[in-house]
Amino acid sequence: MERRALRRFQRNRGAVVGLVIVAGLLAFAAIGPLLAGHDPNTSDFAAARDGLGGPGGPSRAHPLGLDPLFRDLASRLAHGARVSLLVGLVATAVSVSVGAVVGMVSGWAADGRAGFVDSALMRLVDVGLSFPYLLLVMAIGTALGDVTIVTILLVLGLTSWFGTARIVRSKTLQVRSLDFVVASRALGQPSWAVLLRHVLPNVAGPLIVIASASVAQMIIAESVLAYLQVGLPPPTATWGRMLQEGQRYYTVAPRLAVAPGLCIFLGVLGFNLLGEGVRDALDPKET
């Protein structure tokens, strides 16, 4: 099964392109800051200026030029990649784990003595899915000021698990009624053991599919927060904030907006391709 999936993945050229982009980003995040050779948060007022007296464009010392505060753009992009990837991956992990646990518990409790747990959790999911998060996050974000990477991870992770929980719950309901699960319950195995041994492996497939699609969404979400200025506080470099700050200069120095914009786009594209490749490899309906 796994081997066939792997082969399907390899044959899928889109997925391979996605893998290459993602690998490139990982490399950029890992060694880019070293290659750039400048501190991302230090202004260099001695550097060359552009024709208008503003921060200079690409030069040997600064391959992508300087940002509006005379800092090295390449170095900031590389540090931004770290933020985006970290948020994308960890927030997905948080979201998927919470969704999986809630979904499995809820599905397991349904119709039994603990049925109220299922109802309560599903009402919570209802509410969660109807919530205008962006509004709330903006309200809280503009009041907090002290946003850290942990805050971002929690906000993104904890507001996005509701759909997952629903899917996992229905999958759990299915698995629960399978003969071998019913049998092991009858043999007196504790619930947690059955959940772990039988249910989890069966919901793992959908979870992987959800997770691989979710990374791209998380990267977008982080950049939207940063773009709306409720992300990580300065001087931390994030792509969304760089785009927002560069936008006002796009008539004179378009690279300031284009570079982070392209980075966001590529990051999302890479994970989208990769995610779809994973899904098709695990769920080969079409071939």
């Binding site: 939207v224 773009y227 785009l243 966001i264 786009f265 999302v268 594209l269 989208n272």
Partner: peptide, 14 residues
Amino acid sequence: TLIGISAPTFLTGL
């Protein structure tokens, strides 16, 4: 469609 899915709204809009 890939572009549509991968480009955030603020980028497409601008």
